[in-house]
């Protein structure tokens, strides 16, 4: 099934070289969880700080249980502390 992934800021570097857009369409297996999508891009738990499913926050514990549906959009932000 088709879902969208948005990797923000430094996480964009994990997209294939030459990718200019931060939003990308990908095909995953039916019944995949949010965590399986995160793992597909090898994003560590530390870097996947804020995960949004269709704009709603998905906390760390829920990522394994939360299943994805066709056309879902997952956005991932890294942590930020600089000043």
């Amino acid at each position: 099934m088709k879902v969208y992934i948005e990797l923000y800021a430094s996480l964009m570097a994990l997209l294939p070289p030459g990718t200019q857009r931060f939003r990308r369409e990908i095909i995953i297996d039916e019944g995949s969880s949010v965590q399986q999508l995160i793992d597909r891009f090898s994003i560590s738990a530390e870097l996947a700080h804020i995960v949004l499913l269709n704009g709603h926050f998905v906390c760390g514990d829920a990522r394994k249980q939360q299943k994805l549906a066709e056309e879902d959009s997952v956005a991932i932000w890294p942590p930020v502390a600089g000043g």
Binding site: Y8, A9, S10, W77, P78, V80, A81, G82, G83
Partner: peptide, 10 residues
């Protein structure tokens, strides 16, 4: 509370 690094902020 604010934070910024690289080209991103919160």
């Amino acid at each position: 509370s604010g934070a910024a690094i690289r080209m991103e902020g919160q």
